[in-house]
Every structure is written in structure tokens, then in C-alpha cells.
Design a protein around this nucleic acid. Sequence first.
RNA 1: GGCGGCAUAGCCAAGUGGCCUAAGGCGCUUGAUUGCAAAUCAAGUAUUCUCCAGUUCGAAUCUGGAUGCCGCCUCCA
Length: 474
Amino acid sequence: MDLHLYNTYSRKKEAFQPIEDGVVRMYHCGPTVYQRPHIGNYRAFVFADLLRRVLEIAGYEVIQVMNLTDVGHLQDDADQGEDKLEAQARKEQVDPWQIVAKVSAQFFADLEALGVQPAHHYPRATDHIEEMVEMIQLLLEKGHAYQVGENIYFDVHSFPHYGKLSGNRLDELEAGARLAINPEKKHPADFALWKSDAKHLMKWETVFGPHGYPGWHIECSAMARKYLGEHFDIHTGGEDNVFPHHECEIAQSCSAWDGPFVNLWMHTKFLQVDGGKMGKSLGNAYSLDDLAARGFSALDFRFLLLRGHYRSPLNFTWEAMQGAQEARKNLNDWRNRLLAVTDEKQAQAVDWRSGSAICQARKTFLAALADDLNTPEALAALFPLRNAFLQGHWSGAENAEALALLLQANQVFAFLQQQESSTLSDEEVEALIAARGEARLAKDFARADALRDELSAAGIILEDTAEGVQWFRS
RNA sequence: GGCGGCAUAGCCAAGUGGCCUAAGGCGCUUGAUUGCAAAUCAAGUAUUCUCCAGUUCGAAUCUGGAUGCCGCCUCCA
């Protein structure tokens, strides 16, 4: 499986080649844990999970790190604004650490519901103050940063490639500055590595002063290095991270360690709602609970995300949500029907050399994933097989192949429901179906329907067909 | 003011020069099956890819312009 992935930095698809044979190290920009992430945020996190799963079926060992930002992100002006966490804490009249604990727990619960495999590390910014301070000192020593009072800024002119990732030019950034220029900075694009403010609630005493806290980009550089090394394979985030966040990370990391930082930058486009932007003030920044209130599970939403390509905007509508739910249910039912006529053991024995339509579909499926994670196309390869199966002319070998493919697809997509464990044995089910058959012959439909309901309650689905009654476990 | 992206049927969405008289899903319509229901099967559902002008033997796919939407230049997936 030769993966080709789109690199924001080079603006083209590249053949994927890890730094170390067989191992992929990747870092994902995680949430700022000041309020529960909405479904738009989760697009990026489900993408990170998808990427990991594709790398794993391609045979790589993956080491995955996602940060939790729990300090230092200001909510308006870069130099005067209030820290988001502190603002939320003031609003709820609790201390910031309680907000962090509450939101983090909620975040992990959401991830689990979405079928996201846990990353190997979830480092928190506030646990890595020391690493950040060391890095800032290094940047000062090397002349890439300067100190004004107790504040420290990165000097963007000291890094010639600044702007390469985002396509911005320093002179244009200066010309278009929307904010009043901070007089402490030598250049408006210079960004803070460390700030000091005695009024800040979350602050640390360091060599730079008694009341300091980290700037908004330094945590990712410092933590990525700690868990993945100075040079690693992949870094992901939402499209809004490209500038300034990732641009600044590149500048400070390359400057501090004098070498390459990240080989592959990948960014997800935003989720839109009804063709426009999603926003708290617009009332459409839905949470997973909002979806649940309308009868949609987190996995339904995961499936909706997979129906679009990560590099295109995806339009969320309730109608699309409905469509995703129905389509997911259809594939789930197909899995259940397959299990009624074959089993996982036979699926594992499939050798993929039969040249059947299913083998062809599998090729299409894998090729689509390998081509920059084209999940819509990969998914589209599955549905015609379901239709062919339902026509009822398949051999046992075909059933096994299809089950094998569907289960492999599920390793990547993780959208199938756990099968219910029914209390009824096959023999008991058959006996109840026979009893229902007798009731139907006797035109005792009340009894027949009661038996059908009983089976249904036990997770057994009955279908009356021209060839007789068929059943499967849901 | 600068940088980047998107625009395909009722809805979601692939495709990015000829195999497209446009994939797949959802929905809808009609027929079959059925005690009922569900499920399933069959047929149909864009002569056309936002608009205009070009390039080309040939364009949804390339170029220019217009319009609309999204992201960034302030934290944000």
C-alpha cells in the first residue's frame, strides 16, 4: 500500500516515506480545554484517528501525540487580551484548573463515543513549562529571540523561511496589520514566546520573572520534541492552524534545533453548517449532545465526516445527518446479515486472489485510501457489494470475502455497531420462528406478531421472503 | 489591503482534459413481494457540472473575468 498524502508545505501530494523504517511519529494540535469542543472541532480529531488507522493498515507502527492546551491562549488582542481559560473560569466562578479538569473529561468521553483510538500521549501545556523555558533560553542564546522587560519575542527576521507554509510575506503582513502594533516588538509578526502579567491567575516563576506564562505557539514545539524528537513525520491540525500557529512552530523549532522539524503538514478544512459558517453566536455550534437529542449517535456523525474528503469543506445539514445515519445502518445490517451466513473465522481465511468482484472492490477501496485518504471513494466501493449480496446469488466464498472486506473497512472507518449479545441460541430462535409459522398458518396473527416482537426484543430480526423466513442478529 | 480554498441532482458527495450521454449514499416516484409491518427486489429520478468569455479536434476538469460561500492575516478544528 503506497500512500500518497497532500503536504500543505509543498502544496502537492507526496509519496509517504517515514523517517524511520516502519514507524510513523505524528503530532496533532488538540483542543484548548476551556469549553466542550463542538462537532466542527471533532472533524480534525476524527481525521487524526483516520490517518492513524490508515497508516496502521499500511503496516506502520504509529506513535501519536495530541496536546491539550490548558493555558495561555488569549481571546482577543494578542498582547492585552484575557486568557480564554481564565475568562471561562471567571464566568463560572471557579478556578481555571477546575475548568480544565471538567472539559478534559468531557473531551475524552466524546472521543471514545466517536470511536477514536486513544493517542499514546496527551501532554498538557502546564506540565511542560520547564521544557518551554529551556527552548526559549536556547532561542535567546542563538539570537532568534529578544527580551523586553519580562516578555520575550521571537524575531521572525531571524528565520528566512517564515511565511513559506502559509504563503504569507513579511512585508505584506506588516502592511495589512489589523491591530495596533505592539511597540515592544521589532516587527509586527514577531510573536510572544513568554509573557508576564502579575494579574494572571495561571503563572509561573522562572528565570524570566516571577509572574510569567507561555506564549501561544511554544507548547507544541516543546512537547512535540519531548515525545517525538526534533524531527518527526507528520503534524496535523485544522486549516485555521496554518497561520500563524504552525508557521510559528516551524520558525521556532527549526531555529532552536538547527534542522528539519516536520516532514508532512496536513490540515482539515472546516465543517460548515447550512452552507455557512459554524459559530457559537449563530447557535449552530452543535455538541454531540445536540446530535443525540435529535436521535443521532456519535458514530452516525463519524460516518457523516467520512463521507466527505478532509481537504474539502463539508456542509453539515440535518438532512445530510439523516442520510448518514441511514447509510450507516444499511452497512451495519449488511454486516449482521453476513454473520448469519458466514463467520469471522472464514473471513480470516480469505486469500484475496480469487479475482472476484469483491477482490476488485477491495483494490478500489485500498487505492482510494492510499490516494490522500479519499474516504468517500473508498466507501462508495462497498455499497454495490451489499446490493449484490442482497440479490441472493452469492457463494459461501463470496460471503466470506465480503465479510472480510467489511471488517477491514471497519478497522479504518470504525463505524459499525457492536453486535448485541442475544440471550437466545440458534435452536431457540428456530423454535420460536417455527411457532410463529404455525400461528400464521392458523391465521392467529396476534400470536404471530407477539412472537415476532419477542424475537425482536431479543435482537433477532425476521424477514418474510418468498423463500421463507430469514433471520439475523442485530 | 494581502494570502489560501470551495461552487456538481431535493440533500450529502466523488471525479479535475477524451472510458463522464457525471461514481456512491440518502430521499423521492412507480411496480413486485406481503395477513400486517419491516426488510428486500426491479425500473425511474443532473442531456449536465454557479455564470460569462476563451484555449482545445475535445472541458465539470485548463485560462481570464463575474457572483456566492469558507479559512487565515487576533485565540479558534
